[in-house]
């Protein structure tokens, strides 16, 4: 059990990633990062998952993490409703 745990922990901590915002406002992510971006007429959705050591120095996030980390940001236009169901993995937008 301890051996399995040791292997799992070692693998999970073996990653490394760094994110930062440059002088002109672009956000950079370098390293072992799974990034997902959804861009539609209504919203911009940015998700980032990393494991191991993660260092964030962006405009919106600053800090560091040792382990597993997942974060998501959604920017929504006006006169819309957005529903996110994590179990169904559904994102729906409704216009009013």
């Amino acid at each position: 059990m301890i051996r399995i745990l040791t292997i799992v922990v070692t693998v999970l901590l073996s990653g490394c990633a760094i994110s930062y915002t440059d002088d002109v406002g672009f956000e950079h992510s370098i390293g072992l990062v799974h990034s997902k971006v959804k861009v539609t007429d209504e919203l911009i959705m940015v998700g980032k998952t990393s494991f191991g050591f993660t260092l964030d120095m962006t405009d919106t996030e600053q800090g560091f993490n040792l382990g597993f980390k997942s974060q998501e940001r959604v920017y929504l236009k006006n006169d819309l409703s957005l529903s996110i169901d994590r179990n169904k993995r559904e994102v729906s937008v409704e216009h009013y």
Partner: peptide, 8 residues
């Protein structure tokens, strides 16, 4: 986990 947001 469910999140709903609305604007305007």
């Amino acid at each position: 986990f469910k999140q709903d947001f609305a604007t305007g």
